[in-house]
Simulated scan of single mutants.
Amino acid sequence: MIDIHCHILPGVDDGPQMIMNSIVMAQAALDEGICTIIATPHHLNGKYTNTKLDIVKNVELLNQALLEESIPLTIIPGQETRINGDLVERLQQDEILPLNDSKYVFVEFPSNHVPHYTSQLFFDIQVAGYTPVVVHPERNSTLIQDPDKLYRLVKNGALTQVTASSLIGKFGKKIQKFSTEIVEANLTHFIASDAHNTTSRGFYLRDAYDYIKREFGNGLVFQFMENAESLLDGRAVVGDQPNRIKKKKLFGFLKR
């Protein structure tokens, strides 16, 4: 398996702080069946700054450490950038790092809102030749309350990535329900771990794929896995026509 979103680089953000912790995470990933990880440290989220050059350097160091420990896991450079109005310019200035230097760019929303300029920014990103990938939309309170915002972004060409632990209930039943609705409505294209450690924020990728297999069938599992490979290789990803998440009625009232 390929994990396209993981905080495994040591000492750069809220992931592991020491190289030995990264090694423990790497072994846990292997046990999970993961062979390749895209390291995606936070960037411009108000607390952490991890530029392209710094990430590439740290990925090289971690890969060397894994080689010395005889751990057959490959780390690929990526970045989780908080949405900002200068994102296109930062891409053009080579500060922002697309995943594996492909056309795919992770974009993180604040947890409690979606900026008003998002649609225009995503249009500009696509005009510049890149594809925005919204990370963990299932944990954004605005999207939970108004999933049509997510539908419109995907309809207009954005991709999304749902977190494995969200699907299996690690963030609570409400987020699990919304994650499942996102998958059912064809509003996501990738499942990834967003792992930060091996305790409170583990991988759970195998469990998430098992959940999807039970709920939606094996075909969708293969689709998500193939999309991860396509992203890594810079090829087009696939997905069925996105649908709106229907609001359910309860006692005559609309309810999310």
Score class of each variant (00 low, 15 high):
residue 125 I to L: 14
residue 212 I to P: 05
residue 21 N to G: 15
residue 33 G to K: 13
residue 9 L to M: 11
residue 216 F to K: 00
residue 244 R to H: 15
residue 63 N to K: 11
residue 141 S to P: 09
residue 177 K to I: 14
residue 199 T to W: 02
residue 136 H to A: 13
residue 31 D to E: 15
residue 77 P to C: 04
residue 217 G to E: 04
residue 68 E to N: 12
residue 27 Q to G: 05
residue 20 M to I: 15
residue 103 K to D: 14
residue 91 L to G: 03
residue 127 V to F: 11
residue 210 D to C: 06
residue 74 T to R: 12
residue 41 P to Y: 09
residue 36 T to S: 02
residue 48 Y to E: 14
residue 20 M to T: 15
residue 62 L to E: 13
residue 235 R to V: 07
residue 180 T to I: 06
residue 238 V to T: 14
residue 39 A to R: 03
residue 232 L to V: 00
residue 104 Y to T: 00
residue 88 V to D: 02
residue 145 Q to F: 07
residue 254 L to N: 13
residue 201 R to A: 05
residue 79 Q to H: 11
residue 245 I to M: 00
residue 216 F to T: 01
residue 34 I to Q: 00
residue 75 I to S: 03
residue 22 S to E: 05
residue 249 K to H: 11
residue 164 A to C: 04
residue 87 L to V: 07
residue 11 G to M: 13
residue 20 M to A: 14
residue 93 Q to N: 14
residue 173 K to C: 12
residue 201 R to S: 06
residue 51 T to G: 06
residue 87 L to Q: 06
residue 41 P to G: 08
residue 87 L to P: 01
residue 75 I to K: 02
residue 156 N to T: 14
residue 228 A to G: 00
residue 4 I to M: 01
residue 126 Q to I: 11
residue 234 G to M: 07
residue 10 P to Y: 12
residue 101 D to M: 10
residue 23 I to K: 13
residue 138 E to F: 11
residue 37 I to Q: 03
residue 141 S to H: 08
residue 1 M to F: 12
residue 89 E to H: 07
residue 191 I to C: 01
residue 131 T to I: 15
residue 140 N to W: 12
residue 151 Y to D: 09
residue 207 D to I: 07
residue 252 G to R: 01
residue 1 M to D: 01
residue 86 D to S: 13
residue 32 E to Q: 11
residue 51 T to L: 11
residue 198 T to A: 07
residue 9 L to N: 11
residue 208 A to L: 09
residue 32 E to P: 06
residue 238 V to Q: 11
residue 205 L to H: 02
residue 48 Y to T: 15
residue 76 I to G: 07
residue 143 L to P: 15
residue 80 E to W: 04
residue 197 N to D: 13
residue 53 L to N: 07
residue 102 S to T: 15
residue 189 H to L: 02
residue 249 K to P: 05
residue 184 E to D: 09
residue 130 Y to K: 10
residue 54 D to C: 10
residue 214 R to S: 10
residue 230 S to H: 04
residue 162 V to P: 03
residue 51 T to Y: 10
residue 147 P to Y: 05
residue 35 C to F: 12
residue 228 A to C: 01
residue 31 D to I: 08
residue 77 P to E: 02
residue 240 D to N: 08
residue 110 P to A: 08
residue 193 S to K: 01
residue 64 Q to T: 15
residue 106 F to P: 08
residue 87 L to D: 05
residue 10 P to E: 12
residue 175 I to W: 00
residue 90 R to A: 15
residue 153 L to G: 03
residue 232 L to K: 00
residue 38 I to Y: 00
residue 157 G to A: 08
residue 138 E to N: 05
residue 194 D to Y: 05
residue 85 G to Y: 08
residue 197 N to W: 05
residue 221 V to R: 14
residue 109 F to A: 01
residue 32 E to A: 11
residue 110 P to C: 09
residue 58 N to P: 06
residue 236 A to W: 06
residue 43 H to T: 08
residue 162 V to H: 02
residue 216 F to Y: 03
residue 197 N to E: 04
residue 106 F to T: 02
residue 200 S to I: 13
residue 127 V to S: 10
residue 35 C to D: 14
residue 185 A to Y: 10
residue 191 I to Y: 03
residue 200 S to P: 04
residue 12 V to K: 06
residue 253 F to L: 12
residue 205 L to N: 02
residue 39 A to K: 05
residue 116 H to N: 14
residue 158 A to P: 04
residue 146 D to Y: 10
residue 42 H to D: 12
residue 121 L to E: 05
residue 237 V to W: 00
residue 159 L to E: 08
residue 137 P to A: 06
residue 203 F to D: 07
residue 186 N to M: 05
residue 106 F to H: 11
residue 39 A to W: 09
residue 223 Q to S: 09
residue 164 A to M: 03
residue 143 L to A: 10
